[in-house]
Amino acid sequence: MTAQELPISGDADVVRVRQAVRAAAVEAKLSLVDQTKLVTAASELARNTLTYGGGGGALVEQVQNGLRKGVKAVFHDKGPGIADVAQALTDGFTSGSGMGLGLGGARRLVDEFAIDTAPGDGTTVTVVKWAR
């Protein structure tokens, strides 16, 4: 599977990102529970891109480390960025109408999690889930 770039500018795009991540996870032979965890994390992050980042995109691709396959998803926006990343990752913290589980919850559901953001400079969140 080649890398796939998807726009995120509405609720329907969040659904499409979930479907693309699910398809990549099936192809990488992730277990059903791991597929579900990754797709759920992708749903949280795509919604963040839409709600807090004012829209953006997601890059979904299969990755390989030796014999191990996995799926990498990168969510990027050019929104206001996050001033306090540690606070944003804390359960229960929200600047919007959510439960404050999105970012911290997504981190718990994946194997690798990286966030690159600065105030006024947009946000990029990269997650990877490996097949076991």
Binding site: V33, Q35, K37, T40, D91, R108
Partner: peptide
């Protein structure tokens, strides 16, 4: 609720 969904929800913190 599917088992995989239940496992994920609890890990998510919900």
């Amino acid at each position: 609720m599917r088992p995989a969904v239940a496992i994920t929800l609890v890990e998510l913190g919900l």
